[in-house]
Design a protein around this nucleic acid. Structure first.
Length: 762
DNA sequence: TAAAAAATCGTTTTT
DNA sequence: CGATTTTTTA
């Protein structure tokens, strides 16, 4: 049996460009072991840059050549993008038709997929909504309002993160309710209770539920468990150090039938403990799989030995860690540069200078990353890079799908397939205004509560609600008619015709058009982009539904959506940088209080996690590492004096090369920055021509965009608006907007990152 | 009820 | 400082 499979897959291997055998030969002994021991439990401690991804992909390709069917392989990664890239690499070995069928994805997306098949067993219908943090907060907020708990002690996001913590520790509302003593916590317990209840009523799951419900499903249904145990004969988990308890229990349930489980991780790179990740999982693994083979990958292929030494000297300060020592055959390389800056603007400027120097010395823009602890730091850095015409790309932060107008449209769509989703309903109820105010709404909510029905059902019975004004009755009626109409339309019309009509009829677009401001124009354009995206999705996937589209969208992050573009410096948080590598890395804001970050006081555990984060940052660098800090930094509009981070003093000074040491001059006065600040993004919004005449904009930006795909004056093709000419480019990073003069509809501002424009050659 | 004015508060990090 | 939320007023 194995033989015939072998022949089949060998055919496939021969058809593709690279043979697995040739790759196996290039692995070092522990890598080879990790790749080819395919049966039983294997735990790999993979140091930074030790070829972990290579092992994972080669191993999966090897499994397939050994006759394992791709759908029998479950590979769990940390981001959708990592899964996608892994599949692409495996496709090089075994062809894309096989690679496509591997169950590779994030915990959340894979489990969402399983839950959709099995939802009815848990009392959910197939079209359940997935609530992101924002949605969950709204739900908590609504509950707090109902329970009259709207004081400072009860902040929706804090309460939600508390509930989330309880859920990740597998504490049910009932258990928590019995456990707590103080009135405050009793109230929290009640919110928790109500929250879970409402999620069920809404036919919705939050991010945590995707894990917990999967766990319940497998623990409570023998047949289902056996079905998936039988299917997933080989399980691989990447970034194991960042799994939380429910994730561990799920994998454990799935794997215990055959114990073919392969986990890769590095305790030194555990940076998500605040989100519930547990080191305990690594220790428990050895107990649950006593026969497990332990492999260490300690040879680093990425960094210079200087960089590696510095990383090691940092992580050594942590008490809690598995002892290991990375080594490399790479050259010593340069010292680590340290930049001292006057303030955050000066920091940005010096980094920009340094980047220019690096590029003069043979580095490419795309090989450079600027990392920071908090997203808020990116703004100043962006401005500095812009001033020096350095092209860049920001990852993370607020993504397209988190924009208000996009979330609104998505809420409309969710309501169509899951009308019980009260969070979505409340979100768009008065968007545009429909004459249903808070008073009316409270009556309807009360009606729903007393009858134990969903909010939408209460809307349907609005005629029964006596204390409603006639204006509210009319508003409600129009609203439910709209939803009902398009619920039916979905049965009869194709997605790509029904959805644009629906969104048109919601009145959202008209509302944006009525007020002619930059903001509403942007929103109008963004909604149009989304509509195009849906149309494209519908045409590319004729057998998939709106439900499929929505589930996909709700689990996407900015990082998943955005590809690295050549010729641009990458800006992102240290967390986002995990798993990546760059020839040159800048780590910014190394100041006390900022990195390591301090909220109240820093516990040893938290400090160690910050240190691991620093370690992650350092080990992203291949050739060049540069650290920077500022003497003062503005916070909430006011300057604060800063001290260098103790992380810098933890490095042996022999490794450091201080550049641009500060003299006590006033050359970087506030005034100078004030005068430059006209270049800031907010002033560049369209219509602000008093600051920016056309000629001036052209010269300053055509230089900036030298490496861009789009230049002023070029002809482009848009999937919806047709052909047009670029008349301006402004903003930058994920907010980069280009103004295009379309033949069909005239001038439009488009988000470059999402417009999917193609160039017209002439 | 909706728009305009005032007040508040924020900065961790993300699936 | 600037975005978001709450309060006031028409």
């Amino acid at each position: 049996m194995e033989n015939s499979n072998n022949i089949n897959s060998t055919d496939n291997v021969n058809n593709s460009s690279i043979s697995v055998e040739s790759i196996l030969q290039r692995l070092n002994p522990p890598q080879l072991e990790a790749t080819t021991i395919i049966n039983g439990a294997v735990q790999v401690i993979a140091g930074a840059g030790s070829g972990k991804t290579r092992v994972l992909t080669t191993r999966i390709a090897y499994l397939i050549t050994q006759g394992i069917k791709p759908y029998q392989i479950l590979a769990l990664t940390f981001t959708n993008k990592a899964a996608r890239e892994m599949k692409e690499r495996i496709a090089n070995f075994v062809g894309s038709s096989l690679a496509e069928r591997i169950w590779a994805g994030t915990f959340h997306s894979i489990f969402a997929r399983i839950l959709r098949y099995e939802s009815e067993l848990l009392g959910y219908s197939k079209n359940f909504s997935i609530y992101d943090q924002d949605d969950s907060n709204s739900l908590v907020k609504e509950i707090l309002r109902e329970l009259k708990l709207q004081s400072k002690e009860y902040q929706p996001n804090q309460i939600h993160s508390y509930i989330s913590k309880l859920k990740n520790n597998l504490v049910s509302p009932e258990e928590y309710q019995q456990e707590v003593k103080s009135q405050y916590h009793k109230n929290v317990a009640e919110v928790y209770f109500k929250y879970q209840e409402l999620l069920k009523t809404n036919n919705a799951m939050d991010f945590d539920d995707l894990l917990l419900n999967t766990l319940d499903l497998l623990a409570g249904n023998k047949e289902v468990l056996e079905k998936y145990q039988k299917q997933f004969k080989y399980i691989l988990v990447d970034e194991f150090q960042d799994t939380n308890r429910p994730q561990y229990l799920i994998i454990n349930n799935l794997a215990k039938a055959h114990s073919n489980i392969f986990i890769v991780g590095d305790d030194a790179q555990s940076i998500y403990r605040w989100r519930g990740a547990e080191i305990r999982n690594i220790l428990d693994f050895k107990n649950d799989y006593p026969m497990c083979k332990m492999i260490r990958l300690e040879q680093n292929y990425r960094s210079t030995s200087n960089i590696l030494d510095v990383a090691h000297s940092i992580i050594e300060h942590n008490k809690n860690q598995i002892k290991k020592k990375l080594w490399t055959e790479n050259e010593k390389g340069d010292l680590i540069d340290v930049i001292e800056a006057e303030d955050e603007n000066n920091e940005g400027e010096k980094i920009a200078n340094q980047i220019i120097k690096l590029v003069e010395n043979g580095f490419n823009y795309e090989g450079i990353a600027v990392l920071y602890r908090t997203n808020a730091q990116s703004l100043v850095l962006e401005r500095s890079l812009r001033l020096r015409n350095i092209p860049y790309q920001v990852f993370g932060g607020l993504s397209f799908y988190q924009r208000k107008e996009i979330k609104d449209v998505v809420a409309y769509l969710r309501l169509l397939i899951n009308p019980h989703d009260s969070v979505s309903l409340l979100r768009i109820l008065n968007e545009p205004p429909r004459g249903i105010g808070r008073a009316s709404l409270d009556h309807i909510i009360e009606y729903a509560n007393t009858r134990d029905i969903s909010l939408f059902e209460a809307f349907l019975y609005h005629n029964e609600i006596t204390n409603l004004q006639s204006r509210a009755h009319l508003g409600v009626k129009n609203f439910i008619d709209l939803i009902k109409k398009y619920q039916e339309a979905l049965d009869y019309y194709a997605l790509d015709s029904a959805i644009p009509d629906f969104i048109q009829e919601t009145g959202l677009l008209d509302m944006y058009k009525e007020i002619d401001s930059d903001e509403t124009n942007d929103r109008w354009n963004n909604v149009m982009q989304l509509i195009n995206d849906i149309i494209r999705f519908a045409r590319e996937n004729p057998n998939l539904s709106l439900n499929d589209y929505l589930q996909q969208v709700s689990l996407l992050t900015d990082f998943d959506v955005k590809d690295f573009v050549d010729g641009r410096v990458a800006l992102m948080t240290l967390h986002t940088a995990k798993g990546l590598e760059f020839p040159a890395v800048f780590i910014t804001g190394l100041e006390k209080g900022l990195f390591p970050i301090i909220r109240n006081r820093l516990s040893t555990e938290e400090e160690e996690e910050e240190r691991r984060l620093f370690y992650v940052g350092i080990t992203r660098a291949k050739k060049k590492l540069c650290l920077s800090y500022a003497r003062r930094r503005s916070r909430f509009g006011e300057y604060q004096n800063q001290l260098p981070s103790n992380f810098i003093s933890e490095i042996h000074q022999d490794y450091l090369n201080f550049i641009g040491k500060l003299k006590n001059t006033n050359s970087y006065s506030q005034n100078q920055y004030k005068s430059n600040s006209f270049l800031s993004g907010s002033d560049l919004k369209s219509g602000n021509h008093k600051y920016f005449p056309d000629e001036e904009r052209d010269t300053s930006y055509s230089q900036l965009l030298e490496d861009e795909t789009f230049h002023t004056g070029e002809l482009v093709q848009h999937s919806h608006f047709g052909e047009g000419r670029i008349v301006g480019v402004m903003g930058s990073g994920q907010n980069m907007k280009i103004t295009v003069d379309f033949k069909s509809v005239g001038r439009k501002q488009l988000m470059a990152a999402f417009a999917k424009l193609t160039k017209v050659k002439y």
